[in-house]
Amino acid sequence: MPSPTTDRVVRCRYKRRNDEMCTAAAVEPDGDVLLCTKHLARAITLIRVATARSAK
């Protein structure tokens, strides 16, 4: 857990339809993809669906 005085919380980069940014913390702050748990799960689901379609 980040210290409130020294470390910054890296936020999710998902932009909602109403142009608001998601304010949840990123799952992996040092990663290439900065998404929270909710939006990372949605992305994984979309990837699995697309992969299943292309495998047919």
Rank of each mutant, 00 (worst) to 15 (best):
M1I: 11
M1F: 08
M1W: 13
P2L: 01
S3L: 02
S3Q: 07
P4D: 00
T5H: 01
T5A: 04
D7I: 00
D7C: 06
V9P: 01
V9H: 01
V9L: 07
V10T: 08
R13K: 09
R13Q: 15
R13E: 14
R13Y: 10
Y14W: 15
Y14R: 03
Y14V: 02
K15W: 01
R16V: 02
R16P: 08
R17L: 03
N18D: 15
D19E: 13
D19F: 02
M21T: 01
C22E: 02
C22W: 01
T23Y: 02
A25L: 00
A26R: 05
A26M: 08
V27F: 01
V27L: 10
V27S: 02
P29S: 03
D30Q: 15
D30M: 00
D30G: 08
D30R: 11
G31C: 00
G31I: 03
D32T: 13
V33M: 12
V33G: 03
L34F: 09
L34K: 12
L35D: 06
L35R: 15
L35V: 09
C36F: 01
C36H: 02
C36W: 06
C36M: 04
T37W: 03
K38C: 02
H39Y: 08
L40S: 07
L40H: 03
L40Q: 11
A41K: 13
R42V: 01
R42P: 03
A43Q: 14
A43Y: 10
A43H: 11
A43K: 15
A43S: 14
I44Y: 05
I44G: 07
I44H: 01
T45W: 07
L46N: 11
L46F: 04
I47Y: 11
I47P: 03
V49R: 12
V49Y: 05
A50I: 06
T51C: 11
T51F: 13
T51S: 12
A52L: 06
A52P: 01
A52K: 09
A52Y: 06
A52E: 14
R53N: 13
S54I: 09
S54F: 09
A55T: 05
K56F: 08
K56R: 13
K56G: 07
K56E: 13
